[in-house]
Design a protein around this nucleic acid. Structure first.
Length: 426
RNA sequence: GGAGAGGUGACAGAGUGGUCGAUUGUGCUUGACUCGAAAUCAAGUGUACCUCCGGGUACCGGGGGUUCGAAUCCCUCCCUCUCCGCCA
């Protein structure tokens, strides 16, 4: 969430950001309501604080009087304090209600878009920032999509997943399972080489953690919940990993913090099902390696570009044709200030599949989770958080299988040979 | 799951109803001493919000209560540790 302070000081920038997200004038009125509510909150706090100061003062006097054995005077004061006390109860209730109202309004405001984010309404309006199509595949005439290849080579099985769990929970087997594990290992090794610290986090998180990265209250429906224990299955490693530094004040010399984690990810995805979400294109459980950055605000956009280069290199090593989209205002996620999506070409489906999303959240997450650092002057500031997939397995596997199919079998890219132990799926 | 102990500032650890946002030690920062370091000495060292920039308010695991007044008493929830049970 944004800070009221930011909205107050930078109102025009915030309003322009909302316009870029295609908010109507009517919706944008929330900005003024926030400022008005905050004014009322401040007034209420002042009033309450003054009253509390008075009663505190009198309580002290009573203490002194009691010590001096002047009980009657103390009794007189007590009745006056009791009256003040009743008043504070009323003010306190009003103050708390205003804080809740203000938070409610703030939760409804998305992050302010970076000035470089293009205007636009839908995915159609995203800008292609870069494309790498050196290895654009030419497929044999009888090429088939990955779900057919999976059947042919017994790589994964959806029906068995349905039997165990339900739709969208694939069972990987044989060379399919090995390929999965090889990719995980490959991505982790690359991340560690690039300087990320590997984390193995819990896959279930509590409410505070889910709130820290913004899954609650906004995206509650996206997560599987274990209601009995009040825990949520993580939709991405971003959630537990970023929350590692929740409520921390980090010395500036310890920045940046760069972490990576492999986890399964669980998504309920209430959305539509159909041909375009067949196979591994969209599943409820998939494996992903995530990279998470905690950065100094001065460097975050430079680092954002570095992250793009890092993810690009991974895809190049896997010999997958990809493009990078700079998301337009209408398509950029609620919490993000600027997002690039990576899409790989799945040659048999003849579709681009999203395999990574690299975002700069600026202080949107850190404000919510009180993630701060102490700068060189000893001042406390919110840190910037960034994260990206590096990479999401299911769709990478889909593209790998489709693009590399040959009459003899499915070719494995060279970078993976030492991990799979085989060069072809046969 | 059963029994007991306990949750206080970066850490250790006092404080069991009043002037306690909190003794002290360690750590850290600055200064003195020193050629320099160690040791020693001195000073400083929580966060958030509000502010007429003097200061004010809140926070001692979370929430609620008693009281003029709560870190301290009561209720409740959470967590940690020890022992027992169960278990990969």
């Amino acid at each position: 969430m944004l800070q009221v302070k930011t909205i107050r000081e930078d109102k025009n920038r915030i309003i322009n950001g909302l316009r870029k997200r295609n908010w109507t004038a009517q919706q944008i009125k929330v900005v003024d309501r926030i400022l008005e509510t905050d004014d009322r909150r401040r007034a209420a706090q002042k009033e309450l604080d003054d009253l509390l100061a008075e009663s505190k003062n009198m309580a002290k006097q009573i203490g002194q009087l009691m010590g001096q054995g002047k009980a009657p005077e103390a009794e007189a004061l007590k009745t006056r304090v009791a009256a003040i006390k009743d008043q504070t109860r009323v003010l306190e209730a009003r103050f708390e209600a205003l804080k809740i109202e203000l938070d409610g309004l703030l939760y409804a405001v998305p992050n302010c878009l970076h000035k470089s984010v293009p205007k636009g309404k839908t995915a159609e309006d995203n800008k292609i920032a870069r494309a790498w199509t050196k290895s654009f595949p030419i497929l044999p005439a009888d090429a088939v999509p990955h779900w057919d290849l999976a059947k042919k080579y017994k790589l994964f099985d959806f029906e068995l997943g349905v039997k165990l769990t339900g739709a969208g929970f694939p069972v990987y087997r044989g060379q399919g399972a090995k390929l999965q594990r090889a990719l995980i290992q490959f991505f982790l090794d690359e991340a560690i080489k690039a300087g990320y610290e590997e984390i193995i986090p819990p896959l279930l998180v509590n409410e505070d953690t889910a709130r820290g990265t913004g899954q609650l209250p906004d995206k509650e429906a996206q997560m599987y919940a274990c209601e009995r224990d009040n825990l949520y299955l993580i939709p991405t490693a971003e959630v537990p990993v970023t929350n590692l530094v929740r409520d921390e004040i980090i010395p500036e010399k310890n920045l940046p913090i760069r972490m990576t984690a492999y986890t399964p990810c669980f998504r309920r995805e209430a959305g539509a099902w159909g041909a375009h979400v067949r196979g591994l294109n969209r599943v409820h459980q998939f494996d992903k390696i995530e990279i998470v950055h905690i950065e100094h605000p001065d460097r975050s956009y430079q680092v954002h570009q570095q992250m793009l280069r890092y993810v690009s290199r991974l895809l190049q090593k896997l010999e997958l044709p990809y493009r990078i989209l700079l998301l337009c205002g209408g398509d950029t996620g609620f919490a993000s200030a600027k997002t690039y999506d990576f899409e790989v070409w799945a040659a048999a489906q003849e579709r681009w599949l999203e395999v990574s999303s690299v975002s700069n959240f600026e202080t949107f997450q850190s404000n919510r989770m009180q993630l701060r650092f102490r700068d060189a002057d000893g001042k406390i500031q919110l840190a910037h958080t960034l994260n990206g997939s590096a990479l999401a397995l299911a769709r990478i596997v889909a593209a790998l299988l489709e693009n590399n199919q040959t009459p003899e079998g499915i070719r494995i890219p060279k970078a993976l040979h030492k991990y799979t132990g085989f060069k072809m799926i046969i």
